[in-house]
Structure formats: C-alpha cells, structure tokens
C-alpha cells in the first residue's frame, strides 16, 4: 500500500526553504529508510519573492514529485502562506511564523502558530537558523522522520564551525513542538 507523505516549506527567497527541503529529503532517504523526492519553485530573484520547496516521502518509488495534497506545510511569511496554503489536505498541518503570518487561513487542517524567526534570533542570535528550528518543529509535529535521522541530516549539511548552533536550533524546535502539541 502506498504511503505518500507531502511536505511544503514556504517563505521568502533567502530564508533557506530549499535547504530545509533538501535536509528533510536527506533525513528521510539517506538517514532513515524511506524514499524521498525534493523539488522547488522560485522566481528569478535571488532574495525576496515567495519561495517554496516540496518533499514527497514514501515507502515506494515516487512518481509525481510535486505536492498535490499536503500533509504538512510551513509558512514563514504572509505572502507565502496566502499563496501556497490551498493544497493542504483535510486533517493536514499548517505551521506558521506567528509574527509574520497574521491572516491565518481557515480550513480543515490543524494550525500551529509559533514565533519561529524571533525565537531563533533571541535564543541563538541568528535568524538564519530559523529554517533549522522549523525543521525540528516539523519533525516533532509530524514524526515523519526520526529525530536522530534529522539531526544527522542537519549536521551533514552544515560546516563544522556552525554545527553547535544548528544542533541547538534543532533541539529548540523539538522542544517547542512538544510544548505546542501538549497545549493543543
């Protein structure tokens, strides 16, 4: 039986959404035992504009590599959230950065709100790890990859000098996901 799981990471160009997608795909297909396909869509600009990356995770070879019925979506900006939320499936998950996304779409899906970018800045002094923090949260909220596979995937992608910071960002993400789930 096919077990297809669809994720979409969205935000503004330069926020590391494509890297988040790559890391999720590696966590699933290299460090876990599943199959993954990652694709992306972005405008001609290298910063700004709505940007998205998609990851399909399955237990069998993946045919269509794009998301059509999303199990879990991340939105770091209002523009991306408004533009890309319509494919979230019934019972799916939407995680938004609550400082950025004020107009939260309503639908048959579960919404989690959290100040992702601000938490990264306050805890680690860098907004650049917001994508890693979000990956930690998504891992916690969905359980689609194991925490250890996610950690290995993150560490294999970042230079040695930044491993501690990224490991911390990931841990904060895991914790915050637990808190959000406990609260809801």
């Amino acid at each position: 039986m096919e077990d297809r799981y669809e994720l979409r990471f969205s935000g503004s160009g330069g926020q590391g959404m494509i890297l988040a997608g790559i890391i999720m795909a590696e966590a699933a297909s290299i460090f876990d035992t599943k199959i993954a396909a990652q694709s992306q869509s972005y405008g001609p600009e290298s910063r700004g504009g709505a940007s998205k990356a998609e990851v399909i995770i399955s237990n069998e070879p993946i045919d269509y590599p794009k998301a059509t019925a999303i199990d879990c979506m991340l939105a770091l900006t209002q523009e991306a959230c408004t533009k890309y939320h319509s494919d979230i499936k019934k019972g799916g998950i939407l995680l938004v950065d609550s400082d950025e996304v004020k107009d939260v779409p309503q639908g048959d899906f579960k919404v989690y709100r959290f100040p992702i970018t601000e938490t990264a800045r306050a805890a680690l002094g860098k907004t650049i790890v917001a994508n890693i923090l979000a990956l930690g949260m998504i891992t916690g909220l969905t359980g689609i990859v194991t925490a250890s596979a996610m950690e290995e995937a993150v560490l294999s992608r970042v230079p040695k000098a930044f491993q501690d910071m990224n490991r911390k960002a990931l841990q904060i993400g895991f914790e915050k996901a637990r808190e959000l789930v406990a609260r809801s």
Binding site: I22, A25, S29, I30, I35, A36, A37, Q38, S39, Q40, I62, P65, K66
Partner: peptide, 9 residues
C-alpha cells in the same frame, strides 16, 4: 526544469 532541479536519492 522539474527533472533538472529536483533531488532524489
């Protein structure tokens, strides 16, 4: 572009 830019194991 989809095949060119997508990633798979």
């Amino acid at each position: 572009e989809i095949v060119g830019h997508m990633r798979e194991p």
